[in-house]
Every structure is written in C-alpha cells, then in structure tokens.
Write a protein that binds this DNA or RNA. Structure first.
Length: 597
RNA sequence: GGUCCUGUAGUUCAAUGGAUAGAACAAGUGUUUCCUAAACACUAGAUCCGGGUUCGAUUCCCGGCGGGACUACCA
C-alpha cells in the first residue's frame, strides 16, 4: 500500500472522528509539499471546512494534531491557510527505501495467465518510399507504449500492417519499368527502400510533366490528372496485379523485397520490432468478402455503377466508399479485413492502432463499420492518435524536398554523439567497439527522448539542431547521470563497502534525501498512469525530474568522502535505487543507458 | 460550412481544480585540491480575449479570436 492511500485513510478517520462525517475519499487530496514549505506531503483541508464549521487554519490544526497523535509515521505538521503540511518520519522513508532497493523489478507488473492480451499496431509503412521523421514518431511511440503496457501486466502483441499493394506501389513499379534500366540495390549501392522511393519521385515528376502538357493543350487540370497516360497505366497495373498477372506480381515481389530489406535495417537501428506482420496483399480480399457480406445483410449498399458504400449519415458522418466501381478495394476495406484476421489469430482483449491524427475520421468510421458488421469489439478499439511532426520551416513536404529521412537522421545523431564524445575526451580509454556502442546509445537516446518527452497528442516541432543538444531535458543528460552513479558505485565496490542493505543504526537524512525517496515511491504510479493515458511523455518527464533532483543532491554532498558509515551506506543505496529506476524508466521509452560514458 | 484537436516566457516543453504557473534552450554572472564540468548555483522573462461554475480555474462549461487535421473511387 502506498503512502498516498495510507494517508487518505488516515485523514478519512480523522475527519470522521473529529467532525462525525464520512468524507468522500475523492475529496481527500494528498500532494507533494511545495519546496518552499516545510513537510513532505500536504493535505488540502478546504473540502472539510464546511463540516468542521471552523476556519481552514483551525481545521488543519485539528486534523494535524489528530494524525500526529494517532500515527507514528507522521512526525510533525504545520498549517498554512487551507494546507496541512505533514512531515513523515525518517524511519518510514528508510524502511521504504530498503524495500524498494531489494525489489529488482520495482514498478513493473508482470503478465500472468490471467492477463489480458493487447494488440498494438504501429509503424504501418507504405512500400513505395523510405521511412521519414513522421514514421520515427510513430515507431517510437508504438514501441514505448508496448513496453509500458507490458510493465502494467498486459500481454502484448506488437503488429505491423504493411501497405504493400495499391496504386502507390504501382507508381514506383511503373517508373522503374520505364526509366529504371534494371537498376537494383546491388548495382546502385542504394538501400532498397531508398531506391524504390527514388522511382516514386520519378513517377511524380513525369506525371506532373504530362499533366502540364495536357493543360497546355487546353484540357482542364482535373481532367488532365485523370487522363494522363502514366496514371492510366498505373491503374492498369493495379488491375493486372489484382488479377494475378505473373509479370506484374514478379516485379512487385522483387521491389517489395528490396524495400523490406531496407526497412529491416531501419527498424533494427531504431530498436523496434514486431511479433507479427500483416501484409495488405494478404488481407484485402478478406475485407472485400466482409464488405460483400455487409451488402447482403443490408449494412451497406451498392450503387448502379457497382461501387459499394456505407451510409453513415445517421451517425452524423458522410457516406463512405468501401469498394470502387471496378471492384478494387480501398484503405477502409483493407482495415476491415485485417481486423478480422487478427481477431481470428489472437484472443485479443484490446486493439490499439498507433496512427497519426490525420486519420481520426478514418478510425471513427472503422469503429462504426466493424460494429455494423457485427464484430462486438468494433466499438472498443483504441486509436492512439498522435500529432504531426513539423520542422522549424513548417511542414515536411516531399515535393519541396523538406522531408527528413529516418536513416539520415539517425546516422547524423550518432555521428554527432561520437564527435562530441571525442571532443570532450570521454572515450579516450575505450575500444572502437565501445565507442560505437556508446555513440549509438547516446545519439539515438537523444533523438528518442526528444520525441517521446512531448505529449503524443500535440503536434511538435523538430529542430534538428536543438535535438542534438546534450544539455537540459535531454536523453544524454539522463544517460550521463546514470553513468556517473554507476561510476560511484563501482568505486564503492572497489573500496569494499557493503551497500547491499542497510545495517547498523539509521542515519539522519536530509529533507532533500527524503524528497528523493518520495519521488522514487512515485515510480509505480507513473507507470500505471502512463499506461492508462498512453503517454510515454509522463515517464520521460518523471525520469528527468528524478535525475535533476538527484544531480542537485549529488553536487551538494560527497558520497564516498562521507565519514558517517551508515549515512554513506544510505546514500549508496539511494544512488543505486535511483540508477535502477533510471534504467527501467528509460527502457520503457526504448532508450538504453550506458554504464559509463 | 461541418466534425475533431490545439493556444502557457523569445524558443521547445511541464503543471489529478490548489499555495508565489514549473523546467530546459537561448542571454548574462559565478563554481573545478572534489565520485565524470555532457555538471551545479544565481539573474531576467509567460497562461489568446470575454463571461460562467467554485473557497480556489492554465485546467471544467459557454461565447469569441488564432493555429492545425479531417470532411478523396490516395494509402
């Protein structure tokens, strides 16, 4: 039982016995005492003033006296206006720290056979171009949410739905066929996803030229877009693909394989992985048959031209296309099929889609459609919707070449980390392998932390220059603190100091130190809340807060020089505990922390 | 037009309805006989506007104003 709930019950008892009313537990607010006041925890007494029929000061005084008299963990109190500041006894803090220190999995709830299964879909790339900065946010959020939910006792299946078919990949294929001269990743030395992306850009360029040419001839823009030979040919290709045309299929498989090899490298460097990958080429037919079933039972309707629609006007939405007039499926059709397959494959209790907020409408519709089709889980799907990543100059636009490529960015971050380390002489005693490992941890840690510390719902600005900063609220700052703590612990070990647990008399600890223990006790709550709110940012900001507080303490005291043995022992235990929390917390963000740097 | 999201220091981010709205970066000033100076300390700076609910509102409600997304036979 944590301190908050202990205190809540104590205060409830106090109010009951003093004023004869049973307070609503929600009314009892326990919060950390602000630094400028004495005490550890604060009870807000305004809600009881009416029942007490006394001033806030008197009410606080009475409750404080009652608490101190009746419970040994309250060592003192003071009252300021409606705030009752309580001091918690040192013994309580020391015992708590000991318990936490002994618990190697502190804050983590492991899944057991009764745990629910959560499927988390993230990444979901198209196979026509490499991953960019937007995908990075998606991947990092997806991976981190999976880790956080695991830490909350869920069984988690991470999944990726690869959009490997459709008009977009036909565009790359067509351009490669027309202009590619049989170029391959081997012949060009390019990473496969980048090579395919190159042809996607070429298609776009040539297509635009055709549109322009048609418009010169006096054809309207809309008409030109629809009738340009390249787009007609791409559409033809999609049809040929759906009809299993061998040549088209072969080209498609070859180019997709290039892309997958490229993606694998990117995922590996980013440190994300999947338990199960679905391909739309394998799920879209399932969607088609589901849609046809919907037409039969009246959930959807066909128009004279053969296209199939869902009428959602009753739900306050528009009509939604589900199958084109030519019988090909659209995005929504595929998501219906994929959902069905997934629920056939796994006993899913909760389905989470990590997809950008530009698709809020899509998932609103998907939820309704699945419900209409009779899937009882349709209504309860979670769209974990995150905001866009923008650059200081504005939005990323592939046309204007302002897209930040994922591979380039990661390389740049690691390079910068390596250079900075070397400039500072940090890695002078390391082997080249060690230098690489640390540069990777720091460079990627910097990038990941920069992105994950922001509330996912908000759109964020990514400034490449600032993200490589290693000071302040950054990944490297946290990693650095961890490395320093580890360094102290190593030296203590070398000196033969035993800090496996407290022994001897309890030392007298400072207010700063009890505050640190208090922060430590928050960790499990932070994990729980981060899981409920789907917010890695809560974990990130908590860890930073802990590290910052610790750093201040760390510089005011000299741990190893401390004369008092029990105090030295206590400080080492506190340090080790905090290092453990930093490591666990950062691992929930998918960030590694080095032992030295 | 409709639906949804969002507005906090110069900038990037915080703040279950609670005390004097916190950090970081950028600017300025200090601190290395010391466990790692990728650090620490100090100085200056903000809730878009107007109502309402409340003992108390950055937070909740209503109305403006600003920014964004969606409202495709693209995925």
């Amino acid at each position: 039982m944590n301190l908050d709930s202990i205190l809540t019950n104590l205060v409830a008892d106090a109010v009951k016995s003093l004023y004869g009313i049973e307070p609503d537990l929600n009314q009892i607010q326990i919060q950390k005492t602000k630094k400028e006041f004495d005490g550890d925890l604060t009870v807000v007494t305004f809600p009881f003033v009416k029942a007490a029929r006394k001033s806030p000061e008197q009410t606080g005084q009475e409750i404080g006296e009652y608490l101190q008299k009746n419970n040994p963990i309250i060592s003192g109190f003071n009252v300021i206006k409606g705030f009752l500041n309580l001091s918690i006894s040192q013994n309580y803090w020391l015992e708590t720290l000991n318990e936490i220190h002994e618990n190697k999995k502190y804050g983590i709830t492991e899944a057991d056979e009764n745990s629910g299964l959560m499927m988390i879909e993230y990444s979901s790339p198209n196979t026509n171009k490499p991953l960019h900065l937007g995908h990075i946010r998606n991947n990092l959020l997806g991976h981190s949410i999976a880790e956080i939910q695991k830490a909350n006792g869920w069984k988690v299946v991470k999944t990726n739905i690869v959009n490997d078919r459709g008009i977009h990949i036909c565009k790359s294929m067509l351009a490669w066929k027309l202009y590619g001269n049989n170029e391959t990743p081997e012949s060009s030395g390019m990473k496969g996803d980048h090579l395919v992306g190159k042809y996607y850009v070429i298609f776009d360029k040539e297509y635009k030229a055709e549109i322009k040419g048609l418009m010169v001839k006096g054809i309207g823009e809309e008409e030109a877009k629809k009738t340009a030979p390249l787009i007609l040919e791409a559409q033809q290709m999609l049809l040929a693909w759906e009809q299993n045309d061998p040549e088209t299929r072969q080209l498609w498989e070859m180019m997709n394989d290039w892309v997958y090899a490229g993606f694998d490298k990117t995922y590996q460097q980013m440190g994300v992985s999947f338990d199960k990958i679905y391909y739309e080429s394998q799920t879209y037919l399932e969607g088609k048959s589901e849609v046809e079933r919907g037409v039969k039972n009246g959930a959807f309707y066909a128009r004279p031209d053969g296209s199939v629609w869902a009428d959602l006007t009753a739900e306050g939405l528009d009509e939604k296309l589900l199958l084109r007039a030519d019988g090909t499926s659209v995005y929504m059709t595929q998501d219906i099929g994929t959902a069905k397959l997934r629920y056939n494959d796994y006993p899913i209790n909760k389905m989470v889609y990590v997809v950008g907020n530009e698709q809020n409408y899509h998932f609103q519709v998907l939820s309704i459609l699945l419900d209409k089709l009779g899937f009882e889980w349709g209504k309860s799907l979670v769209h974990f919707s995150y905001g866009m990543v923008e650059l200081p100059e504005g939005k990323m636009k592939s046309r204007e070449g302002t897209v930040v490529d994922a591979d380039d960015l990661m390389t740049e971050m690691v390079d910068t980390a390596r250079e900075t380390s070397q400039e500072l002489g940090k890695l002078d005693n390391c082997t080249p392998e060690e230098i690489e490992t640390i540069a990777n941890m720091v460079g990627l840690g910097s990038l990941k932390y920069f992105i994950l510390k922001v509330d996912p719902r908000k759109s964020m600005t990514f400034n490449p220059k600032e993200s490589i900063d290693f000071n302040g609220n950054t990944g490297p700052f946290i990693q650095y603190t961890h490395a320093r703590i580890k360094s102290v612990l190593r030296k203590a070990n070398d000196q033969g100091i035993d800090f496996s647990k407290m022994s001897g008399e309890n030392p007298k600890i400072s207010e700063k130190e009890s505050y640190l223990i208090q922060l430590v006790t928050d960790f499990p709550n932070v994990i729980r809340q981060a899981g409920e709110e789907f917010s890695p940012a809560l974990v990130a900001n908590y860890v930073y807060d802990l590290v910052k507080e610790f750093n201040q303490f760390y510089h005011d005291f000299s741990i190893l020089k401390e004369e008092n043995e029990s105090l030295k022992q206590f400080r080492l235990i506190l340090s080790e505990t905090i290092a453990g929390i930093i490591k666990t917390g950062m691992s929930l963000l998918g960030i590694e922390v080095p032992e030295r740097m």
